[in-house]
């Protein structure tokens, strides 16, 4: 029985469970600012509320698409899941074991199994290592392949992401943007993870190679029961690949829905509706693009009530005062909007 069937039969819990996860970044005052503050100047520590109170459970073998506005906290949430950032608050379990404390024994065990493919390939590849070393290092260190078979293994992984193994002796700067992104994918796949956090992993690829990599992701899921948190701004890709979609706005989840229902019936949350309405299609020519209406709120100072109210066409008094909670509005569909109480 595959993990997915087991999950469907209710025999295992979710692979990953997030409960009340928060991540805040504090910009501490430098010396001059501290002095100024002591003299009564109006300088305060700035706190970025990157991720606020996120609850999400991901089943084994599931693909969850994570979408939302630029800067809303998707990468930060991904980094928390991958153990790169420690959560400021909340609890995280993997296969039922607590991995909230990244230094804890369980977290260390899961660290290799949860791999992240980074949004920014250039910053995440060591410029002094050749491609073969970047991809081969971790599998060797962790004893996934013996040294004698390493070269062949690396070639295989490179080919699976559409890179010619002839390039194995090159350094990252000698590659094009899309080629670098694939090196990052190859590095993550080389350690045979169970769970992949893909952060805009196909964003820099032309559609044909993107198709190849997405097909690879789908194959791996079939073959190895890989589970994905798939961060992307490309709703076409998310629709194609995901079982469920989680939509984030200013650090919080505002809607979680099965993909088929979301795209067939439309979104429930007004932000999610706006997002779906803007999807560019290859058939729409020389469009007149519209600027964002209303003010884009800042995670330095999130608006009270519903964070979307300054831009929401339906906002009413309660939205400005009280924060809507994520509620189940239809089987498997969750949305955080006061309009759902008005019926």
């Amino acid at each position: 029985m595959s993990a997915r069937e087991a999950a469907a039969a209710g025999e295992t819990g979710p692979l990953l469970r997030l409960e009340g996860i928060c991540k805040r970044f504090v910009k501490r005052l430098d010396l001059a600012e501290r002095l100024a503050a002591r003299l009564g100047a109006d300088v305060k520590e700035e706190v970025v509320h990157a991720v606020e109170d996120v609850d999400l459970a991901i089943e084994p073998g599931e693909v969850v698409g994570l979408v939302g506005e630029s800067g809303c906290g998707k990468s930060t949430l991904g980094r928390v899941v991958a153990g790169i950032h420690a959560a400021s608050a909340g609890r995280m379990t993997y296969r039922g074991k607590d991995i909230t404390d990244a230094a804890g024994a369980e977290a260390k065990k899961s660290a290799l199994k949860i791999q992240m493919i980074f949004q920014d390939p250039f910053a995440s590849l060591n410029p002094r290592l050749k491609v073969a070393e970047i991809v081969g290092e971790a599998p060797l260190v962790h004893g996934i392949v013996p040294r004698a078979q390493l070269a062949g293994y690396v070639d295989e992984v490179l080919e699976s992401v559409g890179l010619d193994p002839a390039y194995r002796r090159r350094y990252p700067h000698q590659f094009s943007g899309g080629q670098r992104q694939r090196i990052g994918i190859a590095r993550a796949l080389a350690v045979r993870p169970d769970f992949l956090v893909c952060d805009e992993s196909v964003a820099a690829l032309d559609v044909s190679i993107q198709a190849q990599v997405l097909n690879l992701f789908m194959d791996l899921r079939e073959r190895l029961d890989l589970t994905y948190l798939f961060i992307s701004h490309d709703l076409g890709v998310v629709e194609h690949l995901s079982d469920r979609v989680a939509i984030m706005y200013l650090g919080r989840l505002v809607e979680v829905a099965p993909t088929a229902a979301l795209f067939a019936e439309g979104a429930n949350h007004p932000y999610a509706q706006a997002l779906l309405a803007e999807v560019p299609r290859i058939d729409s020519r020389r469009r007149v693009f519209k600027p964002v209406e209303g003010e884009i709120p800042s995670p330095l100072d999130p608006p009270p009530g519903c964070a979307f109210h300054p831009r929401c066409p339906h906002a009413f008094a309660r939205c400005r005062a009280e924060r809507p909670l994520l509620r189940e509005v239809a089987p498997g569909r969750w949305s955080a909007c006061h309009l759902n109480d008005q019926a």
Binding site: A166, V207, S208, A211, L214, E239, H240, I282
Partner: peptide, 26 residues
């Protein structure tokens, strides 16, 4: 033509995407 055929919205959801066969030549 192959490029246009690979766009996800031109493909059925969840199905394998049409891809141009073979690899970019070195």
């Amino acid at each position: 033509a192959g490029l246009i055929g690979s766009v996800p919205s031109r493909n059925r959801r969840g199905a394998r995407l049409a891809q141009i066969p073979g690899m970019t030549p070195s």
